[in-house]
């Protein structure tokens, strides 16, 4: 694996690693790491550094809806301009163009189910190009971004093994 991919694979799992530690772990020079990360950022390959939060364990109310959207693609612009009109809304967490039975998966977050549902009925369904929507609410998140929620890792091994 080249250094770029090693950096990406490692930071994808933990973005808090310092350049010095990353250099040690990858057997590279610290300056080289700093330069490489900065060009990865400039090239838009690293798009952000986030924190994965299990909101269910907080007092914050948050619902996530996954919406299947069918649209009529527009001449000249295809799906991209429609996607843009959808993802500009702050409520929208993610938009994916899909193969198969519908066109977009739109992930929306709201404080309540009502709030999320209103967004669909007032904003999304009323767009000219949107033919239909199907809204599914997330009831429980088990695993997200490769991390299992609520899993307590205990070292089951004996502490000294030859």
């Amino acid at each position: 694996m080249d250094l770029r991919n090693e950096i990406l694979n490692t930071l994808e799992k933990d973005s808090r690693i310092s350049p010095a530690e990353l250099a040690a772990r990858l057997g590279a020079d610290e300056t080289a790491i700093v330069n490489e990360v900065s060009s990865l950022e400039k090239e838009g390959i690293i798009c952000g550094y986030l924190t994965l939060i299990n909101w269910e364990k907080t007092s914050e109310e948050l619902v996530t809806a996954l919406i299947e959207v069918k649209v009529t693609p527009q001449r000249g612009n295809g799906f991209d301009s429609i996607a843009q009109r959808i993802y500009k809304y702050d409520e929208v967490r993610a938009v994916y163009l899909m193969s198969g039975g519908f066109d977009f998966t739109v992930i929306v977050e709201g404080k309540t189910m009502r709030e999320a549902a209103l967004f669909v009925s007032e904003k999304l369904s009323t767009m000219e190009t949107v033919l239909s929507t199907a809204t599914h609410f997330v009831l429980k998140k088990y695993k997200d971004h490769g991390i299992v929620f609520g899993e307590e890792k205990k070292d089951e091994r004996m502490r000294i093994i030859p």
Binding site: R157, R159, P162
Partner: peptide, 9 residues
């Protein structure tokens, strides 16, 4: 704590 284990984590 231990660094004495001879099997994968």
């Amino acid at each position: 704590i231990s660094l004495g284990v001879g099997e994968p984590d």
